[in-house]
Write a protein that binds this DNA or RNA. Structure first.
Lengths: 206, 206, 206, 206
DNA sequence: CATGAATGAGCGTTCATTCAT
DNA sequence: TATGAATGAACGCTCATTCAT
């Protein structure tokens, strides 16, 4: 029976197209922001009709959420690799920070910034309760607790507060403006910020 | 002469109304976000006609900026009080943090969050070059440098990076979600977060 | 009894104010055109409140019509002076043309142009059937017929058509653009245009 | 291949619709004038939604300008036909006058009148610098000069003044009111007015 | 499957007019 | 009589979503 083959061919094409769409979303999102990214423009840049876009994603929200998930997945897959057992918790977390910042386009910070702060998108996030996001968060939490157990970090500070601060200071978007000023390189900024954070939670400073 | 009295009465009423409008703005802004806050809805909730709103504020932008400025002024006036000369830089900064968090509604964090990240509002901020915002930032910068001079803080960390991190971790909006979870009180959260920050920049931990 | 005196005093003040208002109308009309002349702006420039304007003129239309009538009255009073009996019809008409063009501000052409062609104002004219306008028109008609009787003008051309053409070519507004180009002076333009018109209806050319 | 056929079908329908829209514009423009012609009303009368109107014309201005241009093009195409070499300049100009007046609806005069004198539309005309309008004007200018060269017209009268008077007296809108009175037919009026004009500039009277 | 024309609710803004003071 | 704050209908324009082809 040829059907399955065809179907998977179609399916493959479908996925390729969705991938293409999401790439275009990234592009337009960076140029225009969430609200001013119109379905029309995305479709046009992809080279398909507006209606076709709706065959892949039922609503604008869905499209954006799909894009968001893909980005989070990239971070997650970089994060969930097993670390050597004897690696310190801080080293693991530093590796995670690097993963969060190292994306090919170098624009992930901006993208997450746009999405996290779009008024429209926040609603979606609440509705869809992004599991990927949770898994990233859980991974960090795990290593923070590990660090506390190993006496690397101050056990008196609640882990969830450490966690929250972790994302506040170390997420790519926190230091956008400073980076744009050009005074310091991305690496310099991150080095200093990590020093503040890890010393802050009681870690050793390299 | 009754005139001046009348006028100041009118003027007083006018200010009271503007105050009322700004309160409603706060309310709607929290519920709907910047873009979905319509002039119509604000007017209706205040109990006036749309046109009346425009007697007080020429454009939606102006209304929003007025609201923003009022919030920033509240913070600034709390911040710019002179401190005793022998007070440590850290104590001064901790006092500033308290000022930033202590607002009656307890929602200032959310509000600034909404405004700072609205795609539309960012443009206004750039156009109007918010001086109040700059003055707040400058005040913090001043004490950070003072702290470095006094060897309270690590002189190897660039002050602008300390400043950026200050607002990243210590601004009211940074720990919104954690606060909403209800696990820790506002005071507890802030105590721990300050501990992380000040120890991070090399300060003494109380 | 002092009453009548007071009343006429009041009445006098009232008329003076109305005169002032109409002067301001002229000013604003020239700057902004009919539609963009707002009641607010008129009131402000006069130095009174918007509501006061409405005590003098019930509607914007009424105000504008009053202004229009005043202008037409000025033309009419210049026109209805008796001419010497032996004066030729053409000379009388040429005198009328001069009256229509010679106003102190030199802007009457523009004003009538604005009013005659405002979409809003046309409706008013139809409703109010301006009698002053009719009397001006009748005066011209009279001299055109006189001219035909005296064999100055071609008796084969219907007088109403002569009349219509009179206002088409000779009214101040007909040659605005040409005048603005600066190539010819007002006097030159009018001399040539009158030559065309009077020769056209069979008159002698001076 | 069905595509090209389909496309031209669509394209045809599109043009038909635009034609329909422009017809409705004519209708509403005559009833309401420029400013009071709302996009909503046009759409409703055409039987489409407001948004659909904007698929054809980006702005109200564009729609109105398109309508204006179409009218001017009709006149221009009627005017730019080559005339026999031995035809007199006056005969050519009379032919042009006929072209300007002969439209099926008989309302072109009113329409151009409305557009030319709308405060809003004047601005558009200046921005778009209507070339069609210029070409019509230039064509008339050409024949006026030809007439002067051939001693048909008075060489002492500046051509631009002749030109200006041409449009003042002979344009369809100049004698609207007279026509509406019903006393004379369109043909009669134009015959007399042309007699006045051409005799006025020194032409022979047929 | 793919299209893109069509929809229409919704927005910010203006201004002639009214009316309580 | 004079004020000017208040009104609210009306406008041009946008864009996510639908659906006949």
């Amino acid at each position: 029976m040829a059907r399955p083959v065809h179907r998977s061919l179609k399916e493959k094409q479908r996925q390729e197209r969705e991938e293409l769409i999401l790439q275009v979303v990234e592009e337009v999102l960076l140029e225009r922001g969430y609200r001013d990214t119109s379905m029309e423009e995305i479709a046009t840049r992809v080279g398909i009709a507006k209606g076709t876009l709706y065959l892949h994603f039922t609503k604008k929200e869905d499209l954006m959420f799909a894009f968001f998930e893909r980005e989070m997945q990239k971070i997650l897959s970089a994060i969930e690799q097993p670390f050597p057992a004897n690696m310190s918790a801080q080293a693991k977390l530093e590796s995670i920070v690097r993963s969060m910042h190292n994306d090919p386009s170098g624009k992930r910070g901006d993208l997450l910034y746009i999405l996290f702060h779009s008024e429209d998108f926040k609603i979606i996030l609440q509705q869809k309760s992004a599991t990927t996001l949770t898994r990233i968060s859980d991974t960090v939490l795990l290593y923070l607790e590990e660090g506390k157990a190993r006496h690397e970090f101050d056990p008196h500070i609640p882990t969830v507060i450490m966690l929250n601060s972790f994302f506040s200071v170390l997420s790519p978007r926190a230091h956008r403006r400073l980076l744009q000023s050009g005074e310091y390189s991305h690496e310099e900024i991150m080095r200093y910020v990590q020093r503040i954070y890890f010393r802050g939670i009681g870690g050793h400073i390299s």
